[in-house]
Design a protein around this nucleic acid. Structure first.
Lengths: 143, 143
DNA sequence: ATTATAATGATAATCATTATCATTTAAGGA
DNA sequence: TCCTTAAATGATAATGATTATCATTATAAT
């Protein structure tokens, strides 16, 4: 006899997802999927790159991490959910967080909301990317 | 007798580049390379998609147009060089310009500069993308 | 222990973009 | 006008990043 029944789709634990998430939570940089994959392979040699992409994508959809569309090169991932903006160096392509004090964040949000109010859109989120030349690249010149 | 001499690399006119640039200058939306290609093919059936990508890339480097890294889907291109920010609808993926009055732009720039001054970076440019739900999608619900 | 199914890893497939290269075209003399 | 030169083109191969497929494994509940 066969019983057919529904089961609600539920997340099932996996060591891989745990590792991916924990790594992004603790790293301070913003690795690409491949950079993260190569790093995690050291701790877990059997991990596959598809698993990394799959979980990064899932974690983004659940809002647990953020995908950054890099101005140059492939997408990067960020486990920092605190209000912040990004700075990308146009020479070394590195992206660093710029943390915002709550008063700074409010000021910027207010400016942006004032601008958006002219339209009839609902604001979900905003992304600010500053682009320029970082300290190191100013000193070393072009590599 | 053969004379060898240098010639400064100089831009040579092409009907294709003219068409691509003029189209982006006048369009108010932000097409992807492929969308633009399909549109231009109607006026110039012999145009190739490589030519579109090539010229979009060149025009970007010369600062005559802007490449927008879309939150969803492939890159988009923008011929509007006036100070403005973008709004992308997370349901229909459309991107629209939000023009800034010079006082609004100044306010935002000042906020961002204040934040950046904590670092030692030089600011070249900034990109602001607002994400949310546009008027149409609020009315029609999810398609 | 059994069962159901979510998740994985290998890899094929896809999508967007860039590189290659033979041919065409624009521009500037002869 | 006719040459010459090199930039630009268009077709298409190649690449890079990401997603889909699918047989197998691992988790969690009974």
């Amino acid at each position: 006899m066969i019983f057919l029944y529904h089961k609600i789709a539920m997340e099932k634990y996996s060591r891989q997802r745990e590792l991916i998430y924990h790594s992004l939570e603790t790293r301070k940089d913003h690795p690409t999927a491949e950079e993260l994959y190569l790093d995690l392979k050291e701790k877990m040699p059997e991990i596959g790159i598809a698993t990394v992409y799959r979980n990064l994508s899932d974690l983004c959809q659940k809002g647990k991490i953020i995908k950054i569309k890099s101005k140059y090169g492939p997408d990067r991932f960020d486990g920092n959910l605190m209000p912040h903006i990004h700075f990308q160096c146009e020479q070394c392509n590195n992206i660093v967080d710029i943390e915002l004090k709550s008063e700074e964040k409010e000021k910027i949000d207010n400016d942006l909301l004032a601008v958006l109010n002219k339209t009839d859109a609902i604001l979900t989120t905003s992304e600010i990317l500053l682009i320029g030349i970082c300290k190191q690249c100013q000193n070393h010149g072009m590599n």
